Simulated assay, not measured.
Amino acid sequence: MTSPAVRTYHHGDLRRALIDEGLQLARTGGPGAVTLREATRAVGVSPNAAYRHFADRDALVHAVAHGAQRALADAILAHVAETPAGLSPRDAAIERLRRVGAGYIAFARTERGWFETAFFTHDAQPSEGIVTLDDEIVAPFRLLMDTLDAMVDAGALAPDRRPFAEWACWSAVHGFADIAVHGPVRWQPPEVVDALAAGVVESAITGVIGAPAPPPRTS
């Protein structure tokens, strides 16, 4: 008798079906839960069938990581899409960066399995100081870079402060997201984590833009 959890696979895109099942496994159990045996069992094919599409478990995890990265980028874009109308181009550009950071942290807190999977694997030698997978800039990192470029265009970020600004932003936000999920911050009440997250994002923005010049001293 077939288990109710098994969705028998008849035809179609088996590779896509296995990735989708891998994403479901990762969502609840992180990258460690993604195995060819579990994915093929859920789809309803033999483990040997998977080897026509994936050389080994690592190859499946690799593909699932791509999907988790895309889910993270989509979640960030949903936050960015809620940027209030009526802001000046400069303020709107800064607000979008703020929402990129907030969306990243929110995703980590609500989708722990996918967050853990998204950067579980990457190219061993990142190209030109960027995070890549299969020689492509990963979607969340590309989104951050584009947001910073738009800030330069809007006059919100000085061109000479743009190089490698993505690393300052990502280090701060990813670091906080990680300790919010795995570290002592996870024991704090949600409202405390929200306040801490907002503070980290603001600090990252200030650090990238640069502190405003002090007012002139009066005699």
Results as ranks from 00 to 15, higher is better:
residue 166 E to D: 15
residue 99 R to D: 01
residue 127 S to D: 11
residue 124 A to P: 06
residue 196 L to G: 04
residue 93 A to H: 05
residue 14 L to R: 01
residue 111 E to M: 03
residue 111 E to N: 12
residue 115 F to W: 15
residue 214 P to E: 14
residue 42 A to M: 08
residue 9 Y to V: 07
residue 208 V to A: 07
residue 41 R to N: 07
residue 173 V to T: 13
residue 206 T to L: 15
residue 93 A to L: 10
residue 143 L to P: 00
residue 80 V to D: 13
residue 180 A to Y: 01
residue 24 Q to S: 11
residue 7 R to Y: 12
residue 5 A to D: 15
residue 148 L to N: 01
residue 138 V to S: 04
residue 58 D to K: 00
residue 111 E to Q: 15
residue 5 A to F: 06
residue 135 D to C: 05
residue 124 A to N: 08
residue 85 A to F: 08
residue 107 F to C: 05
residue 191 E to I: 06
residue 151 M to H: 05
residue 182 H to K: 13
residue 94 I to T: 13
residue 60 L to R: 07
residue 188 Q to A: 14
residue 63 A to V: 00
residue 30 G to M: 00
residue 100 V to K: 09
residue 46 S to V: 15
residue 85 A to M: 12
residue 168 A to W: 10
residue 148 L to Q: 02
residue 174 H to L: 09
residue 62 H to K: 12
residue 216 P to T: 11
residue 50 A to S: 15
residue 130 I to E: 13
residue 135 D to I: 04
residue 73 A to E: 14
residue 191 E to F: 10
residue 47 P to N: 02
residue 73 A to W: 04
residue 84 P to K: 02
residue 193 V to P: 00
residue 158 A to V: 04
residue 63 A to Q: 01
residue 146 D to F: 02
residue 15 R to S: 08
residue 124 A to S: 13
residue 70 R to Y: 03
residue 201 V to Y: 06
residue 25 L to C: 03
residue 6 V to K: 10
residue 192 V to K: 13
residue 56 D to T: 01
residue 95 E to A: 11
residue 1 M to T: 02
residue 78 A to W: 04
residue 105 I to C: 06
residue 184 P to Q: 02
residue 179 I to D: 10
residue 130 I to W: 10
residue 149 D to G: 05
residue 117 T to R: 02
residue 199 G to D: 11
residue 183 G to E: 04
residue 26 A to K: 01
residue 98 R to F: 03
residue 149 D to P: 01
residue 104 Y to E: 08
residue 93 A to G: 07
residue 53 H to E: 00
residue 55 A to R: 09
residue 61 V to Q: 01
residue 61 V to H: 00
residue 194 D to R: 14
residue 62 H to Q: 13
residue 193 V to C: 04
residue 40 T to W: 09
residue 4 P to N: 04
residue 8 T to R: 13
residue 5 A to E: 14
residue 136 E to I: 04
residue 75 A to K: 05
residue 157 L to D: 03
residue 5 A to L: 08
residue 86 G to P: 13
residue 71 A to Q: 04
residue 64 V to G: 07
residue 121 T to M: 02
residue 13 D to N: 15
residue 36 L to W: 03
residue 57 R to E: 11
residue 42 A to E: 09
residue 85 A to Q: 15
residue 166 E to V: 09
residue 140 P to D: 09
residue 79 H to C: 06
residue 78 A to L: 12
residue 44 G to Q: 05
residue 18 L to Y: 08
residue 46 S to F: 11
residue 41 R to H: 14
residue 131 V to H: 08
residue 168 A to K: 10
residue 97 L to T: 01
residue 70 R to M: 04
residue 19 I to T: 05
residue 108 A to D: 05
residue 67 G to E: 01
residue 127 S to L: 13
residue 176 F to A: 02
residue 189 P to L: 03
